[in-house]
């Protein structure tokens, strides 16, 4: 276990090693869901989860390497990841509405008709 020694050995070294292992397994689950996820929304959820997981990953690394400056990366990643998820959600909403027939097609057509009349 040379990695444990690289993390300074002792309790913190082992705990970091074990935590990274657990997070790696979680990452595998997330990636499988990202690959198979039947709809776009499933994939967005998987990506959102992977961002949270990466934040925890970076936090564990900050403890393992004894370098608190890495924490800034985690904060920045959380910010960007949130924006990405929101943008994705909006995109998914509009793309699939454009692509497929609406659920209540009559109402929608009425509304479209109104819209055309307005112009």
């Amino acid at each position: 276990m040379s990695l444990v020694e690289a993390f300074g050995g002792g309790l913190i070294g082992w705990a970091s090693m074990f935590s990274l292992l657990l997070l790696l397994i979680g990452l595998a689950f997330g990636l499988i869901r990202l690959t198979i996820g039947p709809t776009l929304a499933d994939r967005v959820v998987a990506l959102d989860f992977i961002t949270v997981l990466a934040v925890s990953f970076i936090a564990v690394l900050a403890v393992a390497t004894g370098e608190p400056a890495i924490l800034d990366v985690a904060i920045a990643l959380a910010l960007v990841g949130f924006l990405g998820t929101v943008a994705f959600a909006r995109y998914a909403e509009r793309r699939s509405l454009q692509a497929k027939a609406p659920l209540h097609s009559k109402d929608v057509q009425d509304k479209l008709q109104e819209n055309k009349d307005d112009r």
Partner: peptide, 23 residues
Amino acid sequence: DIITAILMVIGSALVCIAGLGLL
């Protein structure tokens, strides 16, 4: 050190189980 280790392992385990739930 002990508190850090416990919090870290419990947190990672929760994230891991969340991933299992996602799957």
